[in-house]
Design a protein around this nucleic acid. Structure first.
Lengths: 341, 341
DNA sequence: CTGAAAGCGCTTACAG
DNA sequence: CTGAAAGCGCTTACAG
């Protein structure tokens, strides 16, 4: 029964031209109110829908945004960072509000990614979330810039490249998190997370962490910074290593909630208590963080606002407007894991 | 610099016709090897990409699948069920493997949903994940059927409707979960989750739960079934209510991991211990479940396989094949929350 | 194996 | 306010 209905069928039924049907359905002011209503009524009656391929081809735009989500290669679906998934939710919603569809693609850094969504006219612009290694990723960004692709990315400002980013003030967020622990009297605060150019967000958090310690005249020996990627497992291993090294530690700043959650598990498995023996704070405020044991104190990134800003910035760029990088503040969400409550 | 390159430009450069370019780029066997390589080389050199709108319009297919994710209306992004998000990951991956793009849409039951992705030729078929209230949702399914839309859904078999589903054997999963608790000597096992026709999956789990109790000659009084939707908060409230009611309970089967996690928090807040005072099992095995305190024992649904099956079934339907509903088994993942380990 | 031609279903100048 | 016509960039019979 799916014999295709076209605008010509509607035109015939309504006794007008196909051009008029096209205008009426797009609510063009060029068409008579009465005509418009009649055409729309008939279209509804016949369950007619404009063929997007045809209209996109003709008007040379897609009404679609592509979201490229990068993760380290892994075939484990469960490894998708819940923080990004929360972002995905808010981005989808923001797109829908703006009348855009969202094409989602999980990219492995291994593949020939920057999947040409804009070049193939499937999308008007691209949102980039995450990256494996920042140094590799930077090369890809250069390609996108060269191709004049419209895109925004989530993250810290990219130096030396004309890239529009939306991100959090990771330095300040890291400062606040560590400062919170200092205020609670902690003296030996470990930082878990890779603090290198390969992970600029973590690095900024680490620099904020160090600044807070400096301001309080507390040292930050190298032995208290342990590399980890943003998974529970990595946080667990890093914390385990730290505990087994007999380094003195009374608090931990996990550079993501997943890391902090893994660290808490390692602390428990080691026979110690959070926050009594070791206080813990995280970064992100993923949905689960209020339900860990104990509930996790963390520097919250506002994913709702982030999604809105990403879409807003991208749409402006597509429209030819100039936009700059936006950094949002983080807010401390104090729960039990730090020992404050 | 984005003056549009078309297949005619490639044809001109290669000294062949545009038809040949089109064939060469799609690796048609109708084209000479040498010609094909030359054309492809030139296309690459000029960074030419086939315009999807044009090719889709002409060939009347989109190479795209739409994923519609339903949740109860809420403006909180964090409420997106991590189980569905894990599914999203595996569906995206399965689509990519099949050469399809994925259009994602979060639907609120309130809206005029079934967003006509197939009618507008933006997608060749639709995958449905979740639903608010099943009774309302069933009406929407009827519309999709009426429109001859190609779609598959995640969930239990739908009775009396010609709908293809992929889901888990919730009855057996529920049976296994409760049976596991029985084997550990539990006698007063509560079920938290709505066990009504409005949530058939939960209902099936409940029926499996009851059957296991029947088989062991243990009662299942109504007082031990508390309604809850699939959120930590709802699980927390339900458990709190149960604890305050002074009903005797030595174990809890949360009909989703989120519910179980919320319940564990309520048990802790009530001053009791998991699993010593009350054992807990969940359902799903979401990523976080290995990192809760204590780690959650749960009936795992294999999201990777689920995503593959959903895409596989849908693609077959699009291709005109007949496919039926598939029910996958669940597997018990035993961790500490049940007291077995 | 290759090319000339038709046509997918729209939108948008252009003319009135 | 409306219509006739062109054309977006492909794919696919059709003919050779």
């Amino acid at each position: 029964m799916k014999s295709k209905i076209t605008s010509f069928d509607i035109a015939y039924k309504a006794g007008v031209s196909q051009s008029t049907v096209s205008r009426a359905l797009r609510n063009s002011p060029l068409v008579n109110e009465e005509t418009r209503l009649k055409v729309q009524a008939i279209a509804r009656e016949l369950n007619y829908k404009v063929d997007k391929n045809a209209s996109n081809l003709r008007s040379q735009q897609s009404g679609t945004i592509a979201l490229l989500l990068f993760e380290d290669p892994t075939n484990d679906d469960s490894m998708i960072n819940p923080f990004f998934l929360a972002m995905l939710g808010s981005i989808t919603r923001a797109c829908a509000n703006a009348g855009y569809d969202l094409l989602v693609s999980f990219q492995q850094m291994a593949n020939d990614w920057y999947a040409d969504y804009e070049d193939t006219h499937k999308a008007d612009g691209i949102i980039l979330l995450g990256y494996g290694d920042f140094v590799d990723y930077e090369e890809k960004l250069k390609q996108l810039i060269e191709q004049n692709t419209h895109f925004v990315r989530w993250g810290s400002e990219v130096k030396h490249l004309p890239v529009v980013s939306v991100g959090c003030d990771n330095f300040l967020g890291g400062y606040d998190a560590t400062n919170h622990l200092i205020k609670l009297g902690k003296q030996h605060i470990a930082f878990i997370g890779e603090a290198s150019e390969h992970a600029p967000e973590f690095q900024d958090r680490y620099l904020g962490h160090c600044r807070a310690l400096d301001d309080a005249a507390i040292g930050h020996p190298e032995s208290l910074q342990i590399d980890a990627v943003s998974t529970e497992d990595s946080g667990y291993q890093a914390m385990k290593e730290l505990l087994e090294s007999d380094t003195k530690v009374d608090a931990v700043f996990g550079s993501s909630d997943l890391i902090a959650i893994g660290a808490m598990k390692a602390i428990h498995d080691h026979g110690l208590k959070v926050p009594n023996d070791i206080a813990v704070v995280g970064f992100d405020d993923i949905p689960i963080s209020g339900y860990t044991y104990p509930p996790l104190t963390t520097a919250k990134q506002d994913t709702t606002l982030a999604g809105e800003l990403l879409v807003d910035h991208l749409l402006k760029m597509i429209g030819g407007e100039m936009v700059g990088t936006t950094l949002m503040p983080t807010t401390m969400v104090v729960r039990k894991s730090c020992g404050a409550a």
